[in-house]
Design a protein around this nucleic acid. Structure first.
Lengths: 146, 146
DNA sequence: GTAGGTGCAAAGAGTTTGCATACGC
DNA sequence: GCGTATGCAAACTCTTTGCACCTAC
């Protein structure tokens, strides 16, 4: 990790009003670099490669903190057991998720804004969030299949 | 459970090519009656009220069978730990989920069909399914809040 | 009668927690 | 130096599995 990059990560922790510890910086770095859904264990293993002295429970605690401060979003993908996490994106986004390679494509455009208002009126519901994911097979996997 | 209702449930099991056991009928009955998301444990407790001799592992095994035959859909709701299940609906549906009482409103209309085609072309992705859930507060909960 | 469904207990996976120590501010 | 982050181990929750027995067909 370059000094410059490290500094950028530390600034983001600072903005979230969190102590800038080595482990938090590393977890944020991994999530930011990968830019995909990762489990606590995925992150733990990656950290291990750089620094032997990390514990899985710390990763869980850091992720909990990050979720609460909005740095990271938890994602209940499909019917997978371990909870997955991704770096929070500035914009509300949807996902195209490949069932084979688990690659995730982020779709920033949201077609549902007007529809949401209609739903609220129709059902007397106050909506604060929606989650939309598409599942299928990406181009690369479709090609390697044959 | 009336004889008539029991018979209707048994026919549905038969159509799924499953042996019509007492426990399977009961699990299907609970899911059908409640028409909401239930965890394996929720179902287990309800069955216990009618019949003491049921085990939780049987409920899990029945749910797995039902999911495979398409009678029931597993739902990874939000960031909840236990997996939830609901009776499979004939039509693709979306959900309005109340964060307070966990009531679920089913929305049968889907505004995404054309959008999905556009996405497929734009990203070279073959989409086989999408999941759309709205989170917020229902009318009843909003009223009791004050 | 046979294939497969079920109960029980034990194991497994993922996650959380208590406590002593280490570290950021 | 104070408050909190962390490591370790143990506990906890949800789910699966092995095996003997039972039930639907």
């Amino acid at each position: 990790m370059t000094t410059q990059r490290k500094e950028a990560l530390r600034i983001r922790l600072d903005e979230a009003k969190l102590k800038k510890t080595r482990h938090r910086t590393m977890v944020l770095d991994v999530l930011d670099q990968e830019n995909t859904f990762l489990s606590a264990d995925d992150i733990y293993l990656k950290l291990k490669q750089e620094d032997a002295s990390v514990s899985l429970s710390t990763v869980y605690r850091i992720l909990e903190t990050f979720v609460q401060t909005g740095l990271v979003s938890p994602i209940a993908l499909d019917d997978t057991k371990p909870m997955l996490y991704e770096i929070a994106h500035a914009h509300h986004a949807h996902h195209l998720i490949c069932r084979q390679c688990h690659k995730v494509i982020h779709v920033e455009h949201c077609p549902l804004e007007h529809y949401e208002t209609r739903l609220e009126k129709a059902h007397g519901f106050t909506i604060d969030e929606h989650r939309l994911n598409f599942y299928g097979v990406c181009e690369a996997c479709a090609n390697t299949d044959q």
